[in-house]
């Protein structure tokens, strides 16, 4: 298809790579002409998913985190995957303020922020196998293209 674009990113699950990951996705989405606000939304959501892979998925071990991005027309699709420990109860994990690591100053707001800042959020996880977080955001909602307006 014409208006599609894809990229994949594989990097070590180190906390120092969290900013690299979100900046890379932000750079990838620039072709959709996002607003500053939309870029911030995506950066926060990517940061949440990657941080979860680092802290919960691999629990400090250095292994691969995989990000897959695709744009299709005005829609941005993002997948963040780890092959770490997985989530026992996904529904409970997605509740606001739910955390399994309160001792590490976790607030339990990661999934809530992903949900708030993206249009769709889906989590697939298997204990012992890993987690895939799928997110979608339509860029330029409510923004009219000047070409569609009568001059």
């Amino acid at each position: 298809m014409e208006n599609t674009n894809e990229m994949q990113l594989i990097f070590d699950s180190r906390s120092s790579n969290e900013s690299f990951a979100r900046v890379t996705v932000a750079a990838f989405m620039t072709s959709l002409n996002p607003t500053v606000e939309e870029v911030s939304d995506v950066k926060t959501a990517v940061s949440e998913a990657v941080t979860n892979a680092v802290i919960h998925g691999y629990e400090g071990e250095v292994k691969d985190v995989i990000i897959r991005c695709r744009t299709e027309e005005r829609t941005l699709y993002i997948e963040v995957e780890d092959k770490g420990k997985g989530i026992e109860d996904v529904e409970a994990a997605m509740e606001p303020l739910f955390t399994t690591k309160p001792d590490l100053d976790r607030s339990g707001m990661g999934f809530s922020f992903m949900e708030a800042f993206m249009d769709e959020l889906e989590v697939e996880s298997k204990p012992g196998e890993g987690t895939v977080v799928r997110m979608k955001k339509i860029i330029g909602k409510g923004r009219k293209l000047w070409t569609t307006q009568s001059l």
Partner: peptide, 13 residues
């Protein structure tokens, strides 16, 4: 200019 749940966590802590 950027904050995520880790920032909220450090404040709550």
């Amino acid at each position: 200019i950027f904050c995520d749940s880790s920032g909220i966590g450090v404040i709550m802590g």
